[in-house]
Computed example of a mutant assay.
Amino acid sequence: MTGDVGFLLARTSGLMVRITNAHLADHGLRVRHFSVLSYVCDRDGASQRQIAAYLGLDPSPVVALVDALEARGLIERLPHPGDRRARLVAPTPQGREMRDQARKDVTKARQRFLKHLSPEERDLLLDMLQRLAFTDAGEGTPSDGGDS
């Protein structure tokens, strides 16, 4: 299995998520919550459909993530300016503050996870993962800083 790309990506993802969840625990967040919060903060809001598409999730788990973040006062649902039927998920000031605090711990988790790679290898890995994750989907490379 050590030559199976799918297995290695899944194992690597699982390890990174566990380390990051441990670092986010003091904030009461998990990786998916942080990802949603970061996405809406970086864009000053988004529809739940946009969030689901970007994160590669079915819409139903996104509803639960948004509900949890809204219950904590970190995001709010607002009328969508371009579609009366849709709601815009936007960060609150507390949400922005939480994202900024939590981002520091996400960075620490990433540094811990990648400690055996040189800075050049880290940059190369990030570049390759961005190309694999986004180019084939026709979305291009994300411009949100890569923390989510």
Rank of each mutant, 00 (worst) to 15 (best):
Ala22His: 13
Val66Ser: 01
Ala137Phe: 11
Pro59Tyr: 06
Ala52Gln: 04
Ser38Ile: 00
Tyr54Ile: 04
Gln50Cys: 02
Ile75His: 01
Gly56Leu: 04
Thr12Leu: 08
Lys115Asp: 08
Arg11Asp: 11
Tyr54Glu: 04
Glu120Ile: 08
Ile75Asn: 02
Thr12Phe: 02
Phe34Gly: 01
Val62Gln: 01
Cys41His: 01
Gly146Asp: 13
Met1Leu: 13
Lys108Pro: 00
Ala86Cys: 02
Ser13Leu: 12
Val62Asn: 03
Gly145Gln: 09
Leu55Tyr: 07
Asp83Pro: 06
Arg96Val: 13
Leu129Asp: 06
Arg32Ser: 14
Asp123Ile: 05
Pro142Lys: 05
Leu69Glu: 03
Asp83Phe: 13
Ala102Tyr: 02
Gln48His: 10
Arg103Val: 07
Leu37Pro: 00
Pro59Val: 15
Asp144Cys: 07
Asp26Lys: 15
His23Phe: 10
Gly73Val: 05
Val106Trp: 01
Val31Ile: 04
Arg110Val: 11
Arg77Lys: 14
Leu126Ser: 12
Arg112Asn: 09
Arg131Gly: 04
Gly145Phe: 09
Ser38Glu: 11
Asp67Trp: 05
Leu125Val: 09
Gln130Tyr: 11
Glu76Gly: 04
Lys115Gly: 03
Val63Tyr: 14
Ser148Leu: 13
Val62Ser: 01
Met1Gly: 15
Gly82Val: 08
Gly145Pro: 06
Leu55Ala: 07
Ile51Trp: 03
Glu121Leu: 12
Ala53Gln: 06
Thr135Ile: 12
Arg32Asn: 13
Gln111Thr: 09
His27Trp: 06
Leu132Arg: 12
Gln101Thr: 14
Pro91Glu: 04
Pro59His: 15
Val63Gln: 13
Leu114Trp: 06
Asp105Tyr: 06
His33Thr: 02
Leu69Gly: 02
Phe7Asn: 07
Leu65Thr: 01
Arg122Cys: 12
Val36Trp: 00
Gln50Ala: 10
Arg87Phe: 07
Asp67Leu: 06
Ala64Met: 10
Ser60Asp: 14
Met1Phe: 09
Leu117Tyr: 15
Ser38Tyr: 05
Ala25Phe: 14
Leu15Asp: 12
Ser35Met: 09
Gln94Phe: 09
Pro61Lys: 07
Pro93Arg: 14
Lys115Tyr: 01
Lys108Val: 08
Ala86Asn: 04
Arg32Lys: 15
Gln111Ala: 11
Asp127Pro: 00
Arg122Leu: 05
Val40Ser: 03
Tyr54His: 06
Leu69Ser: 05
Lys104Asp: 10
Arg43Asp: 05
Val89Met: 03
Leu88Arg: 05
Ser47Pro: 02
Gln50His: 03
Asn21Met: 08
Gly6Lys: 09
Thr107Gln: 13
Thr135Ser: 10
Ile19Phe: 02
Arg11Ser: 12
Ala25Asn: 11
Ile75Ser: 00
Thr20Asp: 04
Lys104Ile: 13
Ile75Glu: 00
Gln50Asn: 04
Ala52Thr: 00
Thr107Met: 12
Ser143Cys: 08
Glu70Met: 02
Asp44His: 10
Arg110Ala: 13
